[in-house]
Amino acid sequence: MSFDRRAILSGLLIVLAALCTTSVAQSATATDRRDPAAIVTWIYRDAGKPSAPADDAKNIILWDSNRKRMKIFSQSLMAQWAKADKRASGDAVIDFDPVSNSQDPDIKSVAIAAKSSSSNRATIAATLTPTGRRVNATTDVVRCDFVRDGDEWKIDNMRGHAGSQSWAIRDMLAHALRN
Rank of each mutant, 00 (worst) to 15 (best):
M1L: 12
M1G: 13
M1A: 12
R6T: 14
A7H: 09
I8D: 06
I8W: 04
L9N: 08
G11H: 03
L12Y: 07
L16R: 12
A17S: 08
S23G: 13
V24L: 10
V24Y: 00
Q26Y: 05
Q26C: 13
P36V: 04
P36N: 03
A38M: 09
A38C: 03
T41C: 09
I43Y: 00
A47L: 04
G48I: 00
S51V: 15
S51L: 14
D55L: 08
D55S: 06
N59A: 11
I60H: 09
W63D: 14
N66F: 06
N66M: 10
I72T: 01
S74F: 03
S76Y: 02
S76F: 04
A79P: 11
Q80P: 08
W81H: 13
K83P: 12
K86R: 11
A88P: 02
G90I: 06
D91K: 05
D91S: 06
V93N: 01
I94H: 06
D97K: 02
P98N: 04
S100R: 04
Q103T: 13
Q103L: 11
D104P: 14
A111G: 07
A111L: 08
I112W: 05
A113Y: 09
A113S: 06
K115W: 14
S117Q: 12
R121W: 11
R121F: 10
A126N: 02
L128F: 15
G132L: 08
R134Y: 14
N136Q: 06
D145H: 14
F146A: 01
F146N: 01
R148I: 05
E152N: 15
D156T: 12
R159V: 03
G160T: 05
Q165C: 09
S166F: 07
A168T: 03
I169M: 06
I169N: 06
R170D: 08
R170C: 09
M172W: 02
M172A: 08
H175A: 12
A176M: 00
L177C: 13
